[in-house]
Design a protein around this nucleic acid. Structure first.
Length: 1063
RNA sequence: GGGCCUGUAGCUCAGAUGGUUAGAGCGCACGCCUGAUAAGCGUGAGGUCAGUAGUUCAAUUCUACUCAGGCCCA
């Protein structure tokens, strides 16, 4: 027996039981072990940072990852997939600082690095395993990935692989220490890399200040604009553009000022232009420094030239502080300007800056409190000295913020370690061209541009919880780079004044983290090497996962080699400069290869109003809530089908409801219909298989449609267009299978004894259901499993334990001609229904005849579909009209695609001429294939191809027309038709009563009714028909049935009481 | 300021190698059908395909610019 679904299905409940089934039978494990290892498809899991709870956007990315892997499995590939967790770095440290109530970085030192790191490790493991955490989400949503052998970035093995790769880079001369302007987070007291910078731009209001720099040798000032007043203390020069036009103006209040002519709009008072001059003329002018806290050793405070100066904002003069800007630093080297660095790595002024010593340069939000920056006080100071032209705090722009603590960054000159990625930038660009990006524009555009502007990778971080930079230095700056634990063992530690070699330490004391690694020292040629204290960028960790997840090259050499590069990865667009970049950069650096061949980029998920989801707006969607309400399948299906992954998705719960009702509801309903009748007929696919060629037209049609679907689906999936693939499955199920095939074929299931025709219907519907189930399986893994089990457990046609171990079938029976035929039939039916609807003619009322005018080439197809059409529209006779039929009025329409290229400019006049052609001329073209016309004094022979002939009305009939098909319906009724209509009404009432009375579909009944004699006269003619339809053994007029089920009706003008009773 | 994407019905989205009637679902109104039945189907209202200019016999589609929104970069 096929299992029937209850009327009210609880999808979440089914999903729970499927999860159990998978677990007990190890289906996931089998989906890998049962596939040929030589036919592998490699997927890399981008490790989420295990920090806090997962959200709906994680469900999106994980659905895409999962469905591609499941699909590949179902096409025969072996798809290994290791989960991974990103466990190092600032996000974890910050979460922990919060927990420990620390307010600044130095608290960690006070607390003890060893203890801090131990806590960090505990925290990440807790986040992985906690309730409603990562493991729960992954399992509940059916994301199949190996969680038990996940790679975890904070293990010794992982770090050792990372170290190995760094040593490889060192050997290639790609690692160096440099003094550069870097984005520095004063809160976290660490530099960030440019890709981290990309993660944290925010719209903010900054100071908008115009300052007067007094010139030494004339009574005038240069007007300078800045948004960072705190950098003025380090000012050493002013830059102008040599070719920019400047003006010298006189004002009442502020005296004589120099500024760019194009920026005069900043002067809000009356002024007089005294002189116009080029920037060149200003070069060398000396000015009085604003501050002199710090003595300088070189010539400073004069006007220099800078090609970066623009007149787009400000005053057209840029103040130069070499310690705080990349342009400033570069130009200062060119002019040999002094370097003033009065700010510490934590963003505070040094004691040298007496008035502001210890003050923060920017406001910072600490865990416990906010501390204000120094800008307002500097402005106040300058104002008191009359040096401010104008000061506000209203300059709105996007400014980089720390991606984890949200505080504004400062550009800051300092020492740090770099990877020379610029050396392989061209190679990265080249390799990138071989990657299949979905969508392509992100790869060519966003990522491509990024590669072209490549800067060296700022690798080091001044933090605690992360992979240590494996570099040891001696006092001369000579370095040792450690590439493995073996090499580390050559070092020693000092314990109680004793020197102990690392190799002699117990194994569990060797922890590739701070503070242990800092203890280790090396001795070479009599010199002592100590570790440089920095960690590496956490993004380097995740970018190393292709090899580090396998502890390569220390173990698993073959596995790594056969699984590199990945065939497929999939992450959010925010990873363009994150993981996508670090994977690509490291693969290019270490292996001179790509790290992935195909990738799907997914966009943000917004709320239904298009706003970003955020806790403060309260519009965050909890994935677990969706799962409990609608189930995982509907949520997954909705996310994938509502818009392509690479377009922002507006998340609307209503959408899930609709998906569930329309697609899943229809699919399950269709299955239930099948199960109902198959059970009655004891059908189980053990019957003789009826070859497609011997099946009725409608069966061959749906089979052909099904196989066309498989073909299209496969093509789309192969090109990673998963949204379209799923939409096709849904359209087929709803429109073709349910609304046409099943509806058209219903009678075959519920009528008559079992014969070839009925068997054919069962076999056809079974195949459709089974195939649709398989196609939908990667997207909706649960309900498809349930359906597959229900179908296959009875028939035992396949011996796969799970739909996910089955194979996507190959399309083999496609009959395009037949599909086209049915399309014509469907069009005729729709047109006919439209006529009936417009004229209020119920379908239950049979009509005598209809006529169809259609192009010659399609007449044959139409006549083959006659039965389907007539039955569907309840009309007795179909007349297909010939060309020379005089009842059709024909006009001609130009076929622009043909005449356009042929006649060019004549098209306009020709169009008019064609539209004016009369019936005779059209008939002539139809008969002779051509007609001569004179257009603008040119003789033109138009042929059949040049025009399209449209039949648009039939005299005296109700007519509808569309795309070259014209349908006309004869609405005249006679007594027989009326009688038959009544009989149908009567049947309909009884069927409804059977339903209301809860009779079984196969129960036989007796019928009795009371009504007008006239109605009886009509109905009596159709007694056999009625009995047959309602399974009645007898029908009696004007008699009663004891204890029968009775109801009163109105049939046309007659009142009627009907009583039915089971036999 | 630069790059990329988006702009089609009240809403969510399709589509068109440029061809004269631009589609679907949801919502609304009115019908219909129903032995799958708390489904289904049809009809109707609703669109200057963001705007302007250009290329073309023909532009919603191609090009340029403008406007609006998003993401990214400076």
């Amino acid at each position: 027996m096929f299992k029937q679904f209850e009327e009210k299905i609880s999808y979440p409940k089914i999903e729970e039981s499927i999860l159990k089934f998978w677990k007990e039978n190890q289906i996931f494990e089998k989906s890998i072990s049962l596939r040929d290892e030589k036919n592998s498809f490699t997927f890399y899991e981008g490790p989420p940072t295990v920090n806090g709870r997962p959200g709906i956007h994680h469900v999106m990315a994980r659905t895409l990852k999962d469905l591609v892997c499941r699909y590949k499995t179902m096409t025969g590939y072996q798809v290994h997939r290791k989960a991974g967790w990103d466990t190092h770095g600032l996000p974890i440290e910050i979460a922990l600082e919060k927990e420990l109530n620390f307010s600044q970085k130095s608290d960690i030192e006070k607390y003890g690095v060893a203890e801090f790191n131990k806590k960090a490790k505990d925290l990440v493991y807790h986040h992985i395993e906690m309730k409603e955490g990562w493991r729960t989400l992954t399992e509940r949503m059916g994301y199949w990935i190996n969680l038990d052998e996940a790679y975890i970035t904070c293990t010794n093995e992982y770090i050792e692989s990372v170290w190995w790769s760094l040593k490889e880079l060192y050997k290639k001369g790609l690692i160096y220490k440099g003094f550069k302007i870097v984005p520095q987070c004063p809160h976290c007291e660490t530099p960030l890399s440019s890709h981290e910078l990309a993660l944290g731009y925010d719209e903010v209001n900054d100071p908008n200040v115009y300052i007067k720099f007094k010139l030494k040798d004339e009574d005038a000032s240069i007007l300078v604009w800045t948004t960072t007043p705190w950098t003025l203390i380090s000012n050493v020069a002013l830059a102008v553009g040599e070719d920019i036009d400047y003006v010298k103006i006189k004002t009442e209040k502020h005296g004589v000022l120099y500024l760019a002519k194009a920026r005069l709009s900043v002067i809000k008072e009356d002024f007089e232009i005294i002189e116009e001059l080029k920037g060149k003329a200003l070069l060398g002018k000396e000015y009085v420094p604003l501050f002199n806290y710090i003595p300088v050793d070189k010539k400073a405070w004069y006007v220099i030239s800078g090609d970066f100066v623009s007149t787009e904002d400000g005053s057209g003069v840029v103040h130069i502080a070499p310690a705080f800007g990349a342009d400033d630093y570069e130009v200062s080297k060119k002019y040999d300007l002094p370097f003033i660095q009065p700010v510490t790595k934590s963003g505070r002024f040094t004691d040298q800056v007496t008035d502001f010593a210890g003050r923060l340069v920017k406001s910072i939000q600490f865990q416990t409190h906010e501390e204000k920056g120094v800008d307002p006080d500097i402005i106040k100071n300058l104002k008191e000295r009359g040096l401010i032209y104008r000061a506000g705090n209203d300059y709105t722009h996007s400014y980089p913020h720390c991606w984890r603590c949200d505080n504004p960054l400062i550009y800051y000159a300092r020492d740090s370690w770099y990877i020379r990625t610029t050396e392989i930038a061209n190679r990265m660009i080249e390799l990138n061209k071989t990657i299949n990006w979905c969508p392509p524009e992100v790869g060519a555009g966003r990522f491509g541009n990024w590669l072209e502007e490549n800067k060296d990778w700022s690798l080091s971080r001044d933090r605690y919880w992360g992979t240590p930079l494996p570099i040891w230095l001696n006092e001369d700056g000579d370095m040792i780079v450690v590439g493995s634990i073996e090499e580390l063992k050559e070092g020693f530690v000092e314990r109680d004044g004793n020197k102990i070699f690392v190799k002699d330490l117990p194994k569990d004391e060797i922890d590739l983290h701070k503070p242990f690694v800092d203890e280790v020292k090396f001795e070479k040629d009599g010199k002592i090497y100590t570790r440089t204290p920095e960690l590496i960028d956490v993004w380097y960790d995740s970018g190393s996962m292709p090899f580090a997840q396998w502890h390569y090259p220390f173990e698993n050499k073959e596995i790594f080699e056969s699984n590199f590069p990945a065939d497929f990865i999939c992450e959010g667009i925010d990873q363009t400069r994150g993981w996508f970049y670090t994977l690509h950069a490291i693969a290019t650096l270490v292996f001179d290869n790509v790290a992935y061949k195909n990738l799907i980029v997914n966009e943000l998920i917004l709320d239904k109003n298009g706003l970003k989801m955020s806790k403060s707006r309260g519009n965050v969607i909890d994935p677990f809530l969706m799962f409990d309400k609608y189930g995982v399948d509907a949520t997954r299906w909705y996310l994938v089908t509502t818009s392509p992954p690479w377009k922002p998705t507006l998340f609307d719960e209503e959408g899930i409801v609709e998906v569930q009702r329309k697609f899943f509801g229809t699919l399950v309903n269709t299955y239930n219909f099948f199960a109902l009748y198959a059970n009655i007929d004891k059908f189980n696919m053990s019957e003789e298989f009826i070859p497609y060629s011997e099946r009725p037209e409608i069966d061959r049609w749906i089979i052909s449609k099904l196989h066309s679907l498989v073909k299209e689906y496969t093509e789309l999936m192969e090109s990673y267009d998963v949204t379209k693939a799923a939409r096709q499955v849904s359209n087929f199920t709803i429109d073709q299978l349910s609304n046409w095939y099943v509806r058209r074929s219903r009678r075959r299931f519920w009528k008559s004894e079992i014969n070839a025709n009925k068997l054919s219907a069962y076999q056809t519907l079974y195949e459709c259901l089974l195939t649709v189930t398989k196609l939908a399986a990667p997207f909706a893994p649960f309900i498809t499993e349930e359906l597959y089990q229900n179908l296959n457990n009875v028939t035992k046609k396949e011996n796969y334990e799970s739909v996910h171990l089955a194979y996507i079938p190959k399309p083999k029976f496609i009959d395009t001609e037949l599909e086209e035929k049915m399309e014509i039939a469907q069009r005729v039916v729709y047109l006919t229904r439209s006529i009936r609807a417009k004229n209020n003619l119920k379908v239950r009322q049979p009509l005598l005849k209809m006529m169809v005018a259609i192009d010659k080439s399609k007449r044959d197809a139409l006549s083959k579909m006659e039965d389907v059409i007539l039955e569907e529209v309840n009309i007795k006779k179909l007349i297909i009209l010939d060309d020379d039929s005089s009842i059709v009025n024909k006009t001609a329409k130009p076929n622009f695609k043909v005449i356009g290229p042929k006649y060019g400019k004549l098209v306009k006049s020709l169009t008019n001429a064609i539209k004016l052609l009369d019936g005779n001329s059209i008939a002539k073209i139809e008969k002779e294939g051509e007609l001569e016309l004179t257009i603008e004094n040119e003789k033109i022979k138009i042929t059949n191809e040049d025009i399209e002939i449209v039949s648009h009305e039939i005299e005296g009939w109700l007519v509808e027309s569309e795309e070259g098909v014209t349908v006309a319906v004869d609405t005249e009724l006679n007594e027989d038709l009326i009688a038959e209509g009544y009989a149908r009404e009567f049947v309909n009432r009884i069927q409804n009563m059977r339903k209301d009375a809860n009779f079984d579909v196969i129960d036989r009944i007796k019928v009795a009714y009371f009504s007008d004699q006239k109605l009886f006269d009509y109905l009596n003619k159709f007694n056999d028909y009625i009995s047959n339809e309602v399974l009645a053994d007898e029908i009696n007029f004007n008699s009663d049935l004891e204890k029968g089920f009775e109801q009163n009706f109105q049939i046309a003008d007659f009142n009627c009481k009907i009583i039915i009773k089971k036999v």
